[in-house]
Design a protein around this nucleic acid. Structure first.
Lengths: 126, 126
DNA sequence: TCTAATTCCGACTAAATTTATCGGATTTCG
DNA sequence: CGAAATCCGATAAATTTAGTCGGAATTAGA
């Protein structure tokens, strides 16, 4: 995604370009499929085709990307969707912690955009 | 750990008590070994033996527990220890994000104690 | 219209990690 | 001594992640 952001406006980038650094391209293709289905990249098929961001780098967050790749953050079965059939009846003391951490981390991920990553201006400078 | 905190001061709790809820006890034993080696629980061997917290529930954080079980939070090879041999020479744009997230999440984990969990007073109430 | 470039797709395989099991050795209370 | 426990290393099973394969569909350009 950073690669695509760096080449924003240059037309669709073929897999081979993106895979440059030793990542197997058939695998990358699979991963890009997730990003496409999540609506983060658009593709052009056929010769001169390739992948590009579907919207501006400012409008794509770390959370968008991570959720596209791995689904919603799931630190524990306990939190998240209902049908979790926890043996403890869903009322154990740990649950609140997981819920809290999930919210906080999602908040962090929401606050980071692709554009931030490019410019290296992540809050707190590190 | 929550179980042990709930039984603080009642003497060592044997595995079987802790495993109560359907968790295989031989596996739990293995996990408790990690907590012991990390210094979070102390054990008494032999009859009437068992596990107990090595210090007060206020002094044990979520981070202590998670690091005992899984080692230091490692969101990406890029950050953390030096010898990571990243093909990009260790200078890619994503690195700052991982470093930032690692710090922030560690901070969150530092701020939650076992005692907080028991009382369900996690900051931000959820 | 043909060809080369390229994405798309489902199924499969391989590697790594996590979860669990086994069999005993050791310790300690009563 | 005997029963109740933890300790330990090895192995096995299950799950997840990473990667491979073979081909079908699409499209630009000659």
């Amino acid at each position: 995604m950073i690669y695509l952001a760096q080449h924003e406006g240059e037309g669709p980038q073929p897999l081979k370009n993106i895979a440059e650094l030793g990542m197997p391209d058939q695998y990358l293709e699979q991963l890009l499929g997730n990003l496409r289905r999540a609506g983060l990249v658009t593709t052009v098929r056929g010769a001169q085709g390739g992948y590009q961001l579907s919207r501006s780098a400012e409008e794509i967050t770390a959370r968008h990307i991570i959720e596209a790749m791995e689904g919603p953050l799931n630190l524990s079965e306990c939190v998240g969707e209902e049908g979790h059939t926890c043996p403890r009846g869903g009322q154990c003391t740990a649950r609140g912690v997981w819920a809290y951490l999930t919210d906080e981390i999602n908040g962090l991920l929401d606050s980071i955009t692709l554009s931030n990553m490019l410019k290296n201006d992540i809050k707190g400078d590190m």
